[in-house]
Write a protein that binds this DNA or RNA. Sequence first.
DNA 1: TGTATACTTCTTGTATACAAATCTGAGTCG
DNA 2: CGACTCAGATTTGTATACAAGAAGTATACA
Lengths: 234, 234
Amino acid sequence: MARITKDQCLDDLKLRILSTDLSPGSDLDETSLAEHYEISRTPMREVLHRLAGAGYITTAENRGAKVASMDIGTMRTFFQTAPMVYANIASLAAEARTAPQLDALKDAQLAFVKATGAQDAQAAALANHRFHAVVGEMAHNPYLVASLDRLLIDHTRLSQRFYRPSNADEKQRIVKASDQHDALITAIEAHESALAIDLSLQHWDLSRDRMERYVRPDPLPVDVVSLKDRRNAI
Amino acid sequence: MARITKDQCLDDLKLRILSTDLSPGSDLDETSLAEHYEISRTPMREVLHRLAGAGYITTAENRGAKVASMDIGTMRTFFQTAPMVYANIASLAAEARTAPQLDALKDAQLAFVKATGAQDAQAAALANHRFHAVVGEMAHNPYLVASLDRLLIDHTRLSQRFYRPSNADEKQRIVKASDQHDALITAIEAHESALAIDLSLQHWDLSRDRMERYVRPDPLPVDVVSLKDRRNAI
DNA sequence: TGTATACTTCTTGTATACAAATCTGAGTCG
DNA sequence: CGACTCAGATTTGTATACAAGAAGTATACA
């Protein structure tokens, strides 16, 4: 890794965590990370503390850092909390958005469309993350945004595989999600906060269905023959 | 300041910020802080980054740390956001609280009663902070708690002067707040989440009235004589 | 063979020296 | 008189050496 700044290191680690390149619960060794980014341990530790503050990782005294885990208990609260926060954020965004923020939102949506078109699942998930983070900025509510940011971390990690459709139905869902983004942009631009709430709840329903399928996927086919084959192969 | 650990330093700074001993917006010099706590700058900087992550302070590259400000814009969103978050947290707390957490809650309320009885406004505000932080822990919802914690920082700073009643009416309000705490404890203990929502909204209404009075205090009496006296005094 | 314990190794935490950036104020020029 | 510049002082950021703690390993003993 070429020599980079502390901020770039921070952003890179965020992306690696969001894309589950660094998987939930995995250990982070500050020495090797510092070597990788070619900075010394002092600023590396600062980056890790920032990540911990933002909920990307957890740290334990004398025990180093771990990527924030995604246990089943937190997932439950995730599904419980997300719609309320998303809807409120969307409503506030419609009220308080500025013109430059609207540009940034359209830009994120452009990246999202491009990534889904190219079947680049990881880029799509990250563009989706950026889209919703910009909506969060628009809300101008530092209190709620703290919740939103934490929700988005897990949302993005959960949705890593969504944007690689394996059939026509899944493809259709991605198109629908993109349409919902466009509709949300229009609502926010027009300051229509009630509509923004409705749209973000619809958008959430779509996401939830896909995420639940990921958390609880279709069971593997019970196929005695292939099981036997596998046993033979050992 | 006697030699202390990093965690104690962190807690002490939190308390000093919550009690507005360190006033919003004031500069924090890491060198003098490190000397004060008798630790070197490296762990001191770590503490500052933790505080920044939790929303107590803000940091700017090469520009040092400041105690988080309380500008009028954020206050608006504070009043907008707090009831929703408090109500949801209370509801979740009633569902998910554990027995030890209930003990901690009763303990915090005991401290609150004691502090208000002793007319110790600062201790009362901090005990109130601890009370609501424990309710937050009970909710077992890391996403929403991120919002709650940030709200409580500003709530506590705003309410610093509440618990020093200047007349019978204000005294009555403090008794009412304490009664509401007791009722909330009972509701949470009985797993009555709907009741917990109602109670926390009532509790919020009481707080809000007092805080708005603080933000927008009664206008000074227009008293020409005393104005003249003041002019003479210059 | 299983457990305990001391020793080694590896990782994290702290102090300090040095580098880089920002701030301050005196002096200069238009 | 005001704006600009540049040196000095102050403050923040980084690297590195050393200390302290945790984890792993080998050996002794039951």
